[in-house]
């Protein structure tokens, strides 16, 4: 289905500069109709800059960016009419009720309150906010505010929904609710573009990912394909007692190891063949006391690619 999807957003050599700072350094990508496309990267990787450019919220410094067949920055109004934008901060209107928030926003798209009201009620139900429709926004929890922003972005039935870190700061229940809503939208054919630094979110929602750091593309592909290609299928985490044991284990595992890495005080060995590392360690009588064997995941890919330096 994704292969069949026509490209809706195409970027070539996209650059974003803020004065001397280069936030995005010439990246290429193509987002197809009906897919969920994720930008994954640590803080300051250039995700938000990219998504702000394709939302026509920030001018393109250099390169080409086509959104729905129109050049971003030139056809701003016509592009925004067809995009649903969920920004990172929950900028719902604190002086209005939930329902008014949706009706006012719809009016910005030229929808009269009469046509917008049934749609607003339907979306409040979809986001499980219908019981609060006349409440003041000030009384809402963080999760509710985020759901309201998403409902608002859907008022004009956009073809593409763009979300900048949709679940950052939400509790697990609220996060699940948002994920469920996004999956339902995708089933209905909405193209979804999101940024995230949550691996679980990217793994669950995204059909294809762009892993970015320092404004550059590190990797691209589907989550499963990236995991398989970069870190193999199995991770063995070992808590060694000393450096000598680290040496011994690494030697014993030998060729079974595709890649090794340190996560804090743990040594992580990655392998394409499940079980091989364990077998080798037992054969060489080098199995440590504390060891965890688990399937690889996107987090392994992410940490391998972007390193372990703290980003603030």
């Amino acid at each position: 289905m994704n292969e069949a999807g026509a490209p809706v957003i195409v970027a070539k050599g996209l650059v974003k500069r803020y004065g001397d700072l280069v936030a995005v350094r010439g990246i290429d990508f193509e987002i197809r109709k009906g897919e969920c496309f994720g930008f994954l990267g640590p803080n300051g990787a250039g995700k938000s800059s990219t998504i702000r450019m394709l939302s026509c919220l920030s001018p393109v410094s250099e390169g080409e960016l086509q959104v729905l067949g129109m050049p971003a920055g030139v056809a701003e109004r016509r592009i925004k009419e067809r995009l649903g934008i969920v920004s990172q901060d929950d900028n719902v209107d604190p002086d209005l009720t939930l329902l008014e928030n949706l009706l006012v926003y719809a009016r910005f798209f030229g929808m009269s309150p009469r046509e917008a009201t049934p749609r607003a009620r339907e979306l409040l139900r979809f986001m499980q906010l219908e019981q609060r429709q006349d409440a003041a926004v000030r009384e809402l929890s963080g999760g509710m505010r985020r759901r309201l922003v998403i409902a608002r972005a859907l008022m004009h039935a956009p073809e593409v929904l763009v979300l900048d870190e949709p679940t950052t700061g939400l509790d697990p229940q609220a996060r699940l609710l948002v994920w469920g809503a996004l999956q339902a939208l995708k089933r209905q054919g909405t193209t979804i573009v999101l940024t995230s630094h949550y691996m679980e979110e990217a793994e669950r929602l995204a059909d294809r990912l762009l892993i970015v750091d320092h404004g550059e593309v590190l990797e691209r592909g589907s989550p499963a394909e990236l995991v398989e290609r970069i870190v193999g299928r199995e991770a063995v985490e070992i808590w060694a007692e000393n450096e000598a044991q680290v040496q011994r284990v690494t030697q014993a595992a030998g060729a079974a190891v595709q890649l090794s890495d340190r996560h804090g005080d743990a040594l992580v060995l990655y392998s394409r063949e499940p079980g091989r590392i364990g077998e080798e360690l037992i054969r060489h009588q080098a199995a440590p006391n504390r060891m965890l064997v688990r399937p690889t995941n996107l987090e392994d890919v992410f940490l391998t690619l972007t390193g372990r330096d703290l980003r603030e």
Binding site: E76, R77, R78, K80, S87, D93, Y105, F108, A153
Partner: peptide, 14 residues
């Protein structure tokens, strides 16, 4: 503080 203008900018308003 409350992003009212920022939200307007995510719509077609100029």
């Amino acid at each position: 503080s409350n992003g009212v203008y920022a939200a307007m900018m995510t719509s077609p308003l100029t």
